[in-house]
Amino acid sequence: MLSKYPQMKKWLYSMLILVFLILETPFILMANAAEPFVLGLPFFLFWNLLWWLIGTILFFIAYLTDWGSKSVKAKSKSK
């Protein structure tokens, strides 16, 4: 069944799941350190911001590709 999903959709959803896994499973504790400082930020803060940014960019890509369901674009234009 999964094979019916467009590549883009699969990629988007896998990446989003990855972001949530990194930020919200106990995996986050591996980044639980004040040092080293990256870009002037404590490591834990930097790590959270980094994955938040990746998530936000993914949402933007999702918007551009209609959440991976490309064909919608053609359809709604024809309306």
Binding site: F20, L23, E24, F44, N48, W51, W52, G55, T56, F59
Partner: peptide, 19 residues
Amino acid sequence: GPVYLTALAWNLLFGFMYY
């Protein structure tokens, strides 16, 4: 301390659910 940083992820989750 930094526990409220989890807000970054919950904003993503909230956004995703809204969609």
